[in-house]
């Protein structure tokens, strides 16, 4: 579905990604792990071109999307969920969800609202349809943010540390929703520090260090039988906490 070839990204002099190769197949649940500042979030943000790669190719549906000038059609097919939720603060929950499908003329207003209410019902937040984001808890905000990408009917969803900004008691409701999506066959790439979640949930895990993928494998291979020395020390540091 997505093939990343030799992806490089510099911020000025600083080389953040130093040649990443990664293949995402349909139905994959790929976890990206690694120490802070290793480039995993940057990699994720390159995939929907929130960051423009310095070099390399990202092949999505047989197109190198780095070469496209109009990104709108690509981005609506690649959903993104952010650490800080990034709901539109001035819009109600319902309007947050329906804004893009209506303004991009994917749905008319009635259909979009109906669809949004249906999705909100599934996450049991339909009673909040007319509330503003500031009235919601962190976990509720993140679930609304996930629904906001779902209504676009994306081929893949990128999760950028979706639970890092949440209070511990709210992490469960968000990971639960992500699991439900995965069980329905959604393709996803997740950057997270919740290693237990990654371990149990992802079918593939890539360990990134200093802008490179040092090891990639099934989550069993990565967590139970790591080969790379840096991965071993990364995992032991986390375990000792």
């Amino acid at each position: 579905m997505i093939e990343i070839k030799n992806l490089k990204k510099n911020f000025g002099e600083k080389k953040v990604l130093k040649g990443i190769n990664l293949i995402v197949e349909k139905g994959d649940r790929i976890g990206l792990i690694g120490p802070s500042g290793c480039g995993k979030s940057t990699l994720l943000r390159c995939v929907n071109l929130l960051e423009k790669p310095t070099e390399g190719e990202i092949i999505f549906n047989n197109n190198d999307i780095c070469k496209l000038s109009d990104l709108s059609n690509i981005r609506r097919k690649i959903g993104m969920v952010f650490q800080q939720f990034n709901l539109f603060e001035h819009l109600t929950v319902l309007d947050n969800i329906t804004l893009a499908p209506i303004k991009l003329k994917i749905m008319d207003e009635t259909t979009a609202k109906k669809e949004a209410i249906k999705l909100l019902k599934e996450i049991k937040l339909d009673s909040y349809a007319n509330s503003y984001p500031k009235e919601l808890s962190g976990g509720q905000k993140q679930r609304v943010a996930i629904v906001r990408t779902l209504i676009m009917n994306p081929d893949i969803i990128l999760f950028d540390e979706p639970t890092s900004a949440l209070d511990p008691e709210m992490i469960g409701e968000v990971t639960e929703l992500i699991s439900t999506l995965a069980n329905n066959g959604m393709t996803m790439v997740i950057v997270s520090h919740e290693l237990n979640f990654i371990k149990s949930f992802c079918n593939k895990v890539a360990f990134i260090n200093d802008g490179k993928i040092l090891e990639i494998g099934t989550s069993k291979e990565i967590f139970n039988n790591p080969k790379n020395e840096k991965l071993k020390s990364f995992l032991s540091k986390i375990k000792n906490k």
Binding site: N48, N73, N86, F88, E89, L104
Partner: peptide
Amino acid sequence: GQIEAGYSLGL
């Protein structure tokens, strides 16, 4: 972040 969220939805 809100602006990026807008872009990520295809706006």
